[in-house]
Design a protein around this nucleic acid. Structure first.
Lengths: 161, 161
DNA sequence: ATAATTCCTCAAGTAAAGTTGAGGTCAAGA
DNA sequence: TCTTGACCTCAACTTTACTTGAGGAATTAT
């Protein structure tokens, strides 16, 4: 493919740092849409380098593949994205990231309060209520409905000897 | 089991907000070690309420099950944890959380610089280098070795019309 | 022209964190 | 006592994000 403006999957892999299998997987998930040559092999546009690089960056920001697919639908297929494209999307990144930082900072504040009071008591500890649906993204019991336990008579910290 | 100081799995589920199946799963992973009655049914200590609550909180802090298992080995089996136990562990939580917040804040700073310069260029964009091994915990191509692509002649943003 | 690469399509495996279901046993209340 | 409702085990399924391998076709290099 030397001199051509189309890339083989191997060439794209080399340029993006992805594996060939990952690129095929991303195609399956709708992140790239290569054409085929006569022999049935994939041929990619140079713009796909950027497209896949975008995927890597977006993953770093904590987006899932399907969220990224949505983002990519806002990007042009055939040409490289413009500055305006990027500005729009990077602001979405920024919001996403801000939210995650906020959640974690709030959690840290609760932890600090908890270290101070030395509780970890189901009755009063803020930490047990930190796990609202919004913050529980994919972790913890999957179908937990958020119903928290009743007070427990045995739920006090023992004092150190 | 009314009046007994041992809990059935259902009672424990009710008190922790976990499902019965999740508790069985956690046992399998070594997070709790219930005894059995004559009939072969699980009987839990009241201290296991706190143990499992700890699991929930630790997950909120981003620890995996196996990391939590390690933490729990530092906690007493038969009795409730002391204030000293909790102080020690909560400080580990704090460090963990601080690191995550730091990583995300750094990423945000890079993003801000990137929004400013409007790049997203493989040649120069910081974001493409944000994905070092430390920050890539389980996400992205699993066996990516960190080898970044070569410069690409087609790697410039197009200007807006 | 032939050998060595690269590429193709499935299908199946992996890890985490559980859930769901089948088939059967135990315990508690009427 | 009998009948629910809770519990048991074990196997299989779920999701996300890929990897690995088998068996074969296309390209490229010599």
């Amino acid at each position: 493919m030397k001199g051509s403006d189309l890339l083989t999957i191997g060439e794209l892999a080399e340029r993006t740092g992805l594996t060939v299998s990952a690129i095929r997987f991303y195609e399956e998930k709708g992140l790239v849409h290569p054409m085929r040559n006569q022999g049935g092999q994939r041929r990619f546009l140079r713009a796909d380098i950027r497209r896949l690089s975008f995927v890597l960056v977006a993953q770093e920001f904590g987006f899932t593949i399907s969220e990224i697919a949505v983002q990519l639908k806002q990007l042009p297929e055939g040409r490289a994205p413009t500055k305006a494209d990027w500005t729009r999307i990077s602001k979405q990144f920024r919001r996403h990231l801000d939210q995650r930082i906020e959640r974690m900072t709030a959690l840290r504040d609760k932890l600090d309060a908890c270290i101070g009071c030395g509780c970890l008591s189901m009755k009063s500890c803020q930490l047990y209520n930190a796990g609202d649906a919004a913050s529980r993204h994919g972790r913890g019991p999957r179908y937990l409905l958020g119903d928290r336990p009743e007070f427990d008579r045995d739920d006090e910290l023992t004092e150190d000897p």
